[in-house]
């Protein structure tokens, strides 16, 4: 299915851009008339995914983050957040709650929060090549898979 509307952002992996990223996606999603709770969930999940790029993928450098948000006729919103950083050796392990390689003040909850706040989360990663996280949420009170 082709999206009804789509936007793409490319920005450097600087922590100051975390707020920009979640606000930009929330602004784009507003056209689907989401609830306040849905927008809050979306902003939280996007913030987690972008933070992962900054803290883990580009741990010792500043790289590019590509974020693409798309809206579909069935009320589905997808946000693809991709980096060309170090990649994840073991995605399954990285998605375990409380697992982190990011230092003592990282909670290790990024993927757990994404999975809790979105309807679907997919992660593709190759070591040395980068990681692509796809977040999916049905907005406006629509049920997943309803057409």
């Amino acid at each position: 299915m082709k999206p009804q509307n789509s936007v793409k952002f490319i920005f450097p992996s600087k922590s100051v851009n975390e707020a920009f990223a979640r606000s930009a996606v929330a602004s784009f999603a507003a056209q689907a008339d989401p609830s306040v709770a849905e927008l809050a969930d979306l902003k939280t999940a996007v913030s987690e995914a972008v933070t992962n790029c900054i803290v883990h993928a580009y741990r010792d450098e500043v790289g590019q983050i590509t974020m693409t948000a798309s809206l579909y006729a069935d009320g589905r919103l997808t946000v693809v957040i991709a980096d060309r950083g170090c990649g994840i050796e073991d995605v399954e392990q990285a998605m375990q709650p409380m697992y982190t390689t990011g230092g003592e003040d990282r909670a290790g909850l990024g993927f757990a929060v994404m999975e809790s706040f979105m309807d679907k989360v997919r992660v593709h990663s190759r070591v040395g090549k980068g990681t692509r996280v796809t977040l999916t949420k049905w907005l406006g009170g629509r049920e997943p898979f309803a057409t």
Binding site: R22, A40, K43, T44, S47, E48, T51, E104, D105, R106, A107, L109, G110, V113
Partner: peptide, 16 residues
């Protein structure tokens, strides 16, 4: 007004 898991890390770190 907004918090992601960094807020949780902040709490856990201060507890330590």
């Amino acid at each position: 007004t907004f918090m992601d898991s960094s807020g949780v890390g902040l709490i856990l770190g201060r507890r330590r």
